[in-house]
Design a protein around this nucleic acid. Sequence first.
DNA 1: AACCCGGGGAT
DNA 2: ATCCCAGGGTT
Length: 356
Amino acid sequence: MTDKALQNFNISSFQKALMEWYRANKRDLPWRANQDPYKVWVSEIMLQQTKVDTVIPYFQHFMSKYPTPHDLAYADEQDVLKTWEGLGYYSRARNLQNAVREIVSSYGGKVPDNPKELGSLKGVGPYTKGAILSIAFNQPHPAVDGNVMRVLARVLKINDDIAKAGTKKKFEQYVQAIISHDDPSTFNQGIMELGALVCTPKEPMCMFCPVQDYYRAYQTGVEKELPVKSKKKKQKKVHYAALLIQNRNGEYVIEKRPENGLLANMWQFPMVPVDEIGNAHIEQWFRMEYGMDITLQAKKGNVSHVFSHLIWQLEVYDAATACFETADERIRFVGHEELDDYPFPVPHQKMMNYLT
DNA sequence: AACCCGGGGAT
DNA sequence: ATCCCAGGGTT
């Protein structure tokens, strides 16, 4: 199946042009200082669905705090989440710590250098596995991400829908066929760097493309049609009353989210799903749910937050309670300064603008 | 195969 | 507003 798209494709010339361009044009990024597998691993997890510029400061902070697998393995999960705060997809951090604990207990703290053990680690999927094997260990494994699919779809003129789950396997076979065995690290990073700097989703800079001669879509004038990518459906709106509840000591009520699902194990101000219960019954619902009496006060404002699959619309209220403690395991009373010690998702950081 | 899981930046 | 990003886990 790969032979048709690769017919008359000069693999070694393509490799040479790509890798020479990469060596001359690659960005100087913190995780490229050396090939430490742990550094490569952390960077690859952070870079999932996240831009380079966003990752850089998080990577620096994370590596100074957890310089070795041992440091991360023995850290408190809440501290790790706090370090990840604002980066999103928090299960990445929890899975990474889970996986690092696994390599400390089973592999002497060394990152495995084979597909089987590496791929069995939490949070290490097909892409990350191939990225670590190729970049850190210089083994010829495919590392197919969005960049690679876009670049190769254009170069090889492939019109499969890259949003479809099964398409990635096809591209992994193409990479397997064209990857450099002399320098798999440079080859894989070269395609990704090309996708990030030249072969961009919109307005690609084809005049600066180092592999123009091999660029079949461009040669046939359909470069603007590729890659094919189906649209994803838009987010569903969810409406909450979000409560800044204070007691007479000036402490706020915060709540730890469940250990699974959205924003797992992160902290938040209590939220009442008003679409389900109606605004008139917030206080009653709160007593039923948390066993705590509150008095709703002034509305402070609105917070809107867009996730990849839903939109939170929060009405922010002040509220008061006579309680200073509760048996509810989720709830904690904390002073204004202590809020900094807990990992909050961005929508609840926005709410802190309304704190008195 | 489809859905769940964040947040930010570019256009 | 829409798209995209060095994806993986769950169902």
